[in-house]
Design a protein around this nucleic acid. Structure first.
Lengths: 217, 217
DNA sequence: AGTGAATAAATTGTATACAATAACTTGTTT
DNA sequence: AAACAAGTTATTGTATACAATTTATTCACT
């Protein structure tokens, strides 16, 4: 593992944690001093980051923490819904009994967290649930791509969990999904997962629009 | 546009054209001399290439032209089928009358090329057909990702066109797809496109297996 | 002759130096 | 006082120099 890889993941974590403002420029010399290396590995790391869409590189201006436009976010959620649907479709045909058990277990943890009102615990268990389905698609490239987009939407998805009444609804959707996967009903699994993710996108849109209204007051 | 971007796309084209053997190492100093620049922009270009999966970067060993394993290729075709299905699903709901006309036009060109036995012309018109559907998904991120994978599979897709009897079958599938899009039948459009691409993957598998048998003789 | 260790050469990763360009400052003009 | 222009500073892009590591070669030894 190269030095620039380590720096890249450190920066990624830092950005996702919100250490930088959106639109903020990442200064190469500062980062070099901070990480106690020369500018070369910093530049390599920044280029790696730009691949994931986390930062934008503008010629002769530098790299900036990226702000997704509302349209872009809607599109990202839509693609996410389609990818998850594909994972579900394939998983319905290929999922192992063991994985089905793991799904039910993750679901139980979701339910417990919901009843206890622990949003963070719920969030983690929910992630496990989805990751299992990605893996059970039996297609490592699809799994990888879906994970990548999942990661990219993480900060936004987290927001919309606090929307009132979302957790119970999400839970019941999970149960339907497990049922479809158990039955091996590919179309049904795909459709349920598409809806499950798409509704997150819509909830997020409403959240965004309410933020904008607050901003304007 | 940076210098390294220009070099990256030049190298990409070069690799796709088959100028390098799979597994061949891309020597930085040679490339630097060839492009008449220093190693720095070459290294940046190689890192850009590694994101597209065209080359593999191994620490302290260099970057190598990548060989897709058979399993990986099957998986890539499967993801392609799913992405195209998603494009078709959304396009069925959003496609413009103008785009529908363009699809029919591209299809006519396909048919003409087929009757004339011009594989290359057919190949190009076929590409136009699919690109229109990507665009008409109305989701620029989905369009972009689908195009990226399409590009990645280009060299392999091209091979399997020469399989006997594929062109007429492909043509009739195209007509059914246009019909589903005209009707606005999202599920049907998705299913037809999935099948249309998946069958390419299968044909390719057969082709591969026949190559392997020839190798073994 | 074949194998293995020691050494040399080649190659990548990192640091630094320089060049080109953008951002900022300051002073002048209206 | 505001706007603009020239000059200065800061920052990115590129080249080169050096260090670390891998690969190739040579030569001794079995």
């Amino acid at each position: 593992m190269k030095n620039s890889d380590i720096i890249a993941s450190a920066l990624e974590e830092s950005i996702l944690r919100g250490d930088y403002q959106v639109g903020e420029r990442l200064n190469e010399v500062n980062l070099a001093a901070q990480f106690k290396v020369s500018r070369t590995p910093i530049r390599e790391a920044l280029q790696k980051l730009s691949k994931s869409g986390l930062v934008e590189q503008i010629h002769r201006r530098g790299v900036f923490v990226r702000r997704h436009s509302p349209v872009e976010l809607i599109e990202l959620f839509e693609v996410m819904a389609e990818l998850e649907a594909s994972c579900g479709r394939l998983a319905a045909l290929r999922i192992s009994d063991e994985a089905l058990e793991q799904l039910k277990e993750a679901n139980s943890k979701c339910k417990a967290a919901m009843l206890a009102g622990e949003a963070d615990t719920y969030y983690y268990a929910n992630e496990v649930f989805h990751m299992i389905i990605y893996k059970q698609s039996g297609n490592s490239i699809l799994e990888q791509e879906t994970k990548r987009l999942h990661q990219r939407l993480k900060p936004y998805r987290r927001l919309q969990l606090h929307v009132r009444g979302r957790m119970p609804q999400s839970m019941s959707e999970h149960e339907d999904i497990v049922e479809a996967l158990t039955q091996g009903d590919a179309d049904q699994a795909a459709q349920l997962l598409r809806g499950h993710v798409a509704i997150q996108g819509e909830k997020f849109r409403h959240l965004m629009s309410s933020f904008e209204r607050i901003d304007k007051i």
